[in-house]
Each structure stands twice: as C-alpha cells, then as structure tokens.
Design a protein around this nucleic acid. Sequence first.
RNA 1: GGGUGUGUAGCUCAGUGGUAUGAGCACUACGUUGACAUCGUAGGGGUCGCUGGUUCGAUCCCAGCCACACCCACCA
Length: 880
Amino acid sequence: MLDKTYTPKDFEEKIYADWEMSGDFKPDMRSNKDNFAIVIPPPNVTGVLHMGHALDDTLQDILVRYNRMLGKNVLWQVGTDHAGIATQMVVERNLAKEGISRHDLGREKFVETVWKWKEKSGGTITKQLRRLGASCDWSRERFTMDEGLSRAVRKIFVNLYKDGLIYKAKKLVNWDSKFMTAVSDLEVIQKETVGKMYYYKYPIEGSENEFIHIATTRPETMFGDTAVAVSAENEKLKHLIGKNCIIPIINRSIPIIADEHADPEKGTGAVKITPAHDFNDFEVGRRHNLPLINILNPDATLNENTPFEGMKTLEAREKTIAKLEELGFMEKIEDHPMVIPYGDRSGVIIEPLMTDQWFVDAPVLAKEAIRAVEQGEMEFVPKSYEKTYFEWMRNIQPWCISRQLWWGHQMPIWYGPDGEIFCEENETEAKEAAAKHYGKEVELTRETDVLDTWFSSGLWAFSTLGWPDKSEYLDKFYPTSVLVTGFDIIFFWVARMMMMSMYMMKKVPFKKCYIHGLVRDEKGQKMSKSKGNTVDPMETIEKYGADALRFFMAAMETQGRDVNMSESRIAGYRNFATKLWNAARFCEMNECKPVAGFDENSVKLPVNKWIVAKAKQASKEVTEYLNAYRFSDAANAVYQFAWGTFCDWYIELSKPIFYGENAEETVETRATAAWVLDRILMILHPFMPFITTELWNNISERNVKLIHAQWPLNEKIDTEALGEIDWAVDLISAVRSLRSGMNIPAGAKLTIYLKDANASSLANLQNLNKMICTLARLEKIEAFGAKQEISKDMVQQVFKEAVILMPLKGVVDFAAEKERLSKELETLNKNLEGYARKLSNPSFVERAPAAVVEEEKRRQAEALENKAKVEEALERIANF
RNA sequence: GGGUGUGUAGCUCAGUGGUAUGAGCACUACGUUGACAUCGUAGGGGUCGCUGGUUCGAUCCCAGCCACACCCACCA
C-alpha cells in the first residue's frame, strides 16, 4: 500500500543505497553494446555542493540514465579535484585561527596537514552528489592527486618538455602577493574602479627650467623607470627625444626615447616606462634594450631599489606623492576611472612581476584543438559557443603553469649543480640522466614549484580512464560521449582538455560539449556568498525532495540561458510528484496492476486505445528532445503527458468504467492504466529517479529494475485512435466552459447541436455518452443532426467543435450572453474583413503556397458559417 | 575599444515567416464530484523593446536605434 502522502525523505536515500550496493551504476565490461561515457567536471575535493553543481550534475544524470535505459553500456566517471590555490587557502585560513602560518610548519608538514584536511572534509560533496541521485560509478572514483593521476601528470609533462612545448622563462607574470605565486591570465579579474591620475614632471638633464610632464596612476613605480617615451610624431615633445631626464627623489638619469606606445592624445603624451612592472612597458623595454629594475618584493612591498623599502605599495604611493610635492614636481591629481586587476581567489591586487616561471606553449597546442572543432570532431551544444572557443584559442598566450604553492603536483624537474635541467618522470630517471650528462653521480635538487590545478584537470578525460596504462576503460570509453559544463569554464577547462587530449591522445576528449548557463537567484542576480543570496541545494532537497529540484533544473534548462532559482517553481514540481503519487494510489485502489503478456496494441476500448497512442506520442517526443539536448522541452513533454493527459483526462475518463458494471471493460482498463503508469515511470525516470523507482517497486513485483528498464523506441503510434477521444475532450471542455460562463447547475439536461453532424460524430456521442455526461456533470446529453429544426426557446452557442443548445430559459443570463455574442460577432467581422482583403490580393493568391491559400479560404468559410450562427443566436435571444 | 547574448502575459521564461489554442507561478470566480486542497473546473491578462527595410504577409529575416546582461582587450 502506498502512503497517503508523498514524503520523498522516506525513500530517496534508501533507494540510492540500494542502487549503489547492487552495482547498478557500473558498466558491463563484457558486453558489446554501444558505449556511452561522461566524465564529471570534478568538484573541489573539499567543496560543498552548490546550485551550479546541482544543475550540472542533474543534466549529466539525465543523460546517463537515459542512455542506460537505451541499453547502452554506460560509464559516468566520477572524481574530485585537488584545487591547488582554493584548498591551500582554506587550510591556511584554518591554521591562521590557531596562529600558525604554513611557514611555521614547513612544506612537508603543511602538505601532510592538507591531506588530513582532505580526508576529513573530502567526503562532503560526494555524499551530496549521492543525495541528488547522481548515478556515477563510485567504485571508480578518482582524485587529481592520487597515484595514477599524478603519474599521468608527470608523464605528459615530460613529453611536453621534451617536445619543447614546456619551457622555463624569466617573464613578467601576474603575481599574487597574498599567496606569493604566479597565476595565469584567467585567474585575474579586472574590476572597474575610480582611481587617481597623478601628473608630475621630470627635469630635463642639463637644463634649468625644462621639464617633461608625466601622467601615471602608479607614481610609486617611478623608481623602476628606465626611460620616458614620447611619440616620434609628437610635434610638441619630439625635440626632447635623445635627451635625458632625472627621476626626482632618487635623482637617477634616464633617456627619453621615441616609441609608438606613447600616444600623443593620451595623458601628457609622455609615458614613463617601467619595464619590470607593466606588460606594455616590458615590450617597450625590449624594443629599446632598456634595463629592468625590479622594485617589489614577492609580498608586494617595495624593495631596496626604492627609498621606501618594506612599505606596502599604497603607503609608498602616498610617500612618493608627498615627497614630489615637497620638491615641487607634483602638478595635479585627478579622479580617473580605471580597471584594476585582482586575484580571483585571493582578492588582492595582482602585480606584474619579473620572475622565473614555467610555460606551456599554448599557441602550438591550440592548433590541433582548433582544427578538431573546425572539422566537427568535437561539437559544442549550443553551437554558438564555438565562436567563443575559437576567439580565445586563436588569441591564446603562453600558459603559465608554475605556482609557488605547496599543495599540488610538484613539477618533475631536477636541477644539476650548475643549474642544468633534467626533466624525467621520477628521481631515479633524473639521476640517471644527470649521471649520463655529467659522467658521474651528482646531487640534484628538485624544482619546488607545483603545477596549476588546471594542468591535471586538463588530462581528466583520459587520466581517469587509466592512462598512461593500457586500460579496457580507455579502449571502450575514450573519447567520451559528451562533456556537460558551464560556459564560465570553457577557457579554464574545456580548452585545456582539448589541447592536452589532442596532444597526447590524438583524439578529442569528448565528442560533444554541452554548455549551460549559471544558476542565479530569483531576481537574476549572480549568487555569491558575499551577497548572501545563495540557496543551498541540500536545504532545497530536504524541503521538496531531490526529484523536485532535479526536475526544476531540467525544466529550466534551455540552451544557452542562465537558470533563475524559483522556489515557487520547485514547489510546483514537488506538487507534480505528489500528483503522480496520487495517480498511482488511484491505480492501486482500482487494482490496476501490470498484467503479464498484456499487449497494449490489442486494447479495444476507445479511451484505452487513445491513452496508449498518447503515451507513445509523449515517449517519442521525450526521446527526440533528449537526443537534441533540449532538456526543458523533454521535461515539459513528460509533465504534460503525466499531468495534463493521464491525470486530468484518462483517469477521469476511466472512472465511469471502474464504477460501472462491465467486467470486460474494467479488466482491460485496469491493465491499460497500469501499462500507462509504467510508461510514465520509465520516461520520467531520468528526471525523477526516486519517486519513479519507489512507485515502480510498490506497484508490483518486477523482474527488471526501473533503472535498467528498456526505454521505448520506434513505436508505431495509432494516430487514428486519437480522434474520437480528442473530440470528446473538446466537447467536454466546451460544455464545462459554457456551464461556468452561464451558471448552469450540475445535473442539467443538455441537448447539443453538432455542427458537423455526421454519422460518426453522432455515433461518438452515443458511444461515449456516459463518459461525457460524467465528466461534464450532466444528467443527460442528446444530439441533433444538422438539419434538425431548432426551436425558439433554445440558445445557441458557438464553439470550435460543437454548437450547444439548451432548454434553459430562466437559468441563463441573457444580457451577458448577448454582450458576449455581440463581441464575438465583432471579432468575426474583423477577421472576415482580413480574409477578404487577403484573398482579393492577387499577389497573395498567386505567390503564397497553395496550401496556405486553401487554409485561408477554409478559415473564411468557417468564419462565415460561425457568423451566421452567432447572428441566429442573437436573434433568438432577442425573442426572449 | 572588440565581441556575444537578451528585450514576448504581473513575474520568470518557451516558441514560430501565415490571425500568439504559449508554459509555470501569481491573479479572479466557483468547487469537500468515491487518487490528489501539494487538488479540481472555468476565466481575466500581451499593439511579441523602438524605427525603418525585405516580403503578398514580419513577433520571427535584414539594418539602425534604445535598454540590460555577460565575455575579451586596454586605458601612461
């Protein structure tokens, strides 16, 4: 017996535990069926599930469950990411609470602490994924820093290095002074701010009263200036080119050079050049062979090359300005809108800094990654994202992969005593290589830098399947079928996976890439902890059930658009689950149980034939929509069928049968209802796996689990079976509408006039009379043929399918009816004008497709007919 | 500065070259009809951002404009 109320909490976790224990999520490695594989975008190992995951993983689970039911051999590869900076940050913050810094511990101890932290809090997100219903193969769970994946990282690193695609270089990089590490361009967020523009002057060397005027937003960097540039075409300033000027305060002489970088229109037309602290200036410096003067320490304090050693940049800025003012070089300070770079994790200002770093030659790797998409080996869904991808890939810069962190993959690089680099997969091999190089054993020191987290994530599609070892999983499931992820990590991850996979595997990592949007709050605002507008998926699941949240995500997912949270909508889908639950209870109460050997194609009753055809139609729609990754359409198709067709109509239509006396009809209807309910459970299962499974198990003993049930495919739909009941449904709706509009009491006797009164419609009415009366709440319903004389005390009403006459004098509000009919007449007249205009337009008649013209004529005829009837009805009303 | 996307019912959004049978929520009226009030029935509500163009016909295609959102680059 099903409980009276739907309480998802009672069964969701139990059902999940059963799936997992029974190995229902594992692929069958012995089968030769088609393969389908997804790798999960690995969440941070110490993270918690947020709505973005809920969306991403729901979509994946829908695809996974759908393909599993299609009979494919399905692998959903799961795992977590070590998330270098993010994790190190959390652990450091925890330590800070105890007043300890990572340096107090030392590298080894610190890394040990992070591992402990990972063990402690690492399980959260995977538990939460289970709660959501994600049917991934947990027996194959991986971690980006586990032994196998670390080996993959080392191997590919060595390959890239030996191919010259990884190199070390002293370059200006984005420096995060909080974590004291380089970060990649992508990890820098540009924020609009109103800053200040400072105008001051440098005296020209050897001249008393001559100055060159400078404008800058960062005066403290003047101590690193090694030139001032003006444009060679700058009429006002070009005479200074070749002279020297003096940097005040430190009184260092620097040349005034000609360079196109100096735009005469901007600032004062003269630019101070600080090659060690500005990307543009660095280029200028290179063109003119200027020396580089570094003025910053790694913690963004000024160094010994400045008079303000040890000071933070902002403080040094104040001092510099004060000093310039004191010396009389300061001219003016203006507000200036500008963009300042911040670290996406640390939130501190990113400083360009000259350091030794390691780079991947991304422009070279990008070539194959671009080609693969150009030639359709990998397809974006929606397609428009390939533009974004191409745009970025074609302008890609070398990727800085070294991080001066402690948590991550330490680079497989060893240095000899003279600094010679040995890149090998392990220390033993490095030593061998060194011995060969030097002709004797030497002491090696290992590079301390670790790799950018995204380096290991970039290998995810094949490293998780067993690479670099031979692996049957790799053989079967690589390339994977589809990657599902948000547009915000196309660059971080999708692009890098493409590059790494094309390089190492010579094949795309996935054949399709489904891109979805962000989950926003109810008002469309981005969710963030600082705004306090985040919604915890676990709380939502607690309140409405995982199925409701999942269905919501699916129903809201329209390609390329963000999803706005809406609690009322989630509640709506919980209501949908309740509705289904109650429909199942109705079936249970009426003894509708699946009948062995039942053939849905041989049912006799019109309602049963009808619902079978509708069910197949709905199944076909869902299938087509899922194949096209149209999640919202697929979800809505199931929803419509289950609620709008099965609950609202079929169950109602079946009541007269269940409460009637005809045993044969009852037996057939029970079996049909059970079949249709099963069908709903199947096509709804990918979206709402829990309630469907619970009902499936409760309804009857099964020899197949729902999760492995056969998805209906290529069914013949008996469209002829639809007409009769569709007609009755329209008729009942029309009668109801009439009743409601005219306050006709329940149990009235109605006589209806059938507009297209032919034998078949009269027969329909005869056959379905009881059913129609029950649903329309009438005592009796009779029909007249078209030629039937219409008596004066009847009011007629125009509807799409039927004209209804009622002997209801005294019950009807004739004034209101008159007004309604007049309005109707007005509309009809307006439409008729339109038809006439169109049909008398020769170019329409000649050039529009024949079918369209015919349709227009048909509409005109129909409108004329209706007009006549409305006029007739009005006349009759006038007689009362 | 370059690019992308969006503007359709009160709200959040589907959708389509042929008079918008649009969806969910919200709203109004009625309703304890033997699954369900987490419900049922009926209903109100839109000149499909603005202006031009293409077309027999445009909400849909094209151009311009306005508004909003996002991405990339840069601003001495």
